[in-house]
Design a binder for these strands. Structure first.
Length: 200
DNA sequence: GTCCTGATAGACT
DNA sequence: GTCTATCAGGACC
């Protein structure tokens, strides 16, 4: 699988964050664990643009143990715990520009059986991965992956498979950030139109 | 729609 | 040490 779907190179991540958020749509997110390898198509993302974005953890350049990885180079994993769930983000922006992209939804692409095993009790296939906390559980992504590069196993992102080369992208306000002033209205959420694995 | 769960970092005393 | 908010999810109505 790694030979068929090699990691995207450093140059892929050297884009404006809003462009990268859209470029990630259709790409495959892979995670290999002791249980096996699983992969899913990224179908929904949200951009968070550091200093000027009140909704971002790195707003006003807040530099802490948690946000530290966002001040580093792009192409690394930023993990964050929300209640009982782990959320996965791709670090974006150059060094000292703390920006990131939250992955909110994936479509199972490889080893759906393993995802189902990790997500018992779901009633429809969509419920396995149609949310930021759900997809990390389905793929087996944990806080251990914080700060890890996305350019080599066990956690990596590969180019769009040919069946996902063409689709239309929609955008709109982000989810769950109601207390962030004007920032809550920024249309920095992107998704693949008509995809069934969008979080809402 | 409402309510409850409950990990972790960060702010505060 | 203690308090509290959080880029949700699930169970319920």
């Amino acid at each position: 699988m790694i030979k068929l779907h090699p990691p995207l190179p450093t140059s892929f991540y050297e884009k404006q964050t809003l462009d990268l958020a859209q470029a990630l749509l259709g790409c495959v997110l892979w995670k290999e664990t002791e249980e096996g390898l699983a992969g899913g198509i990224i179908v929904e993302t949200e951009a968070y643009k550091g200093p000027e974005d009140r909704a971002a953890h790195s707003y006003n350049n807040r530099r802490t143990k948690r946000t530290e990885v966002m001040f580093g180079p792009s192409g690394n994993a930023y993990m964050y715990t929300m209640h009982t769930h782990n959320l996965f983000n791709v670090v974006s922006g150059p060094i000292d520009k703390p920006e990131a992209i939250l992955v909110r939804g994936i479509e199972p692409y490889y080893n759906q059986e393993l995802m189902r095993k990790r997500r018992p009790n779901v009633k429809t296939p969509y419920q396995m991965t149609n949310g930021p906390g759900k997809l990390t559980k389905a793929l087996g992504i944990t806080l251990q992956d914080y700060g890890h590069t996305l350019k080599e196993p066990p956690l990596w992102i590969s180019h769009k498979p040919k069946e996902f080369m063409s689709f239309s992208i929609k955008s709109g306000p982000r989810i769950g950030i109601d207390n962030s002033g004007a920032a809550k209205d920024y249309p920095w959420r992107f998704w693949i139109d008509n995809n069934k694995y969008i979080s809402r």
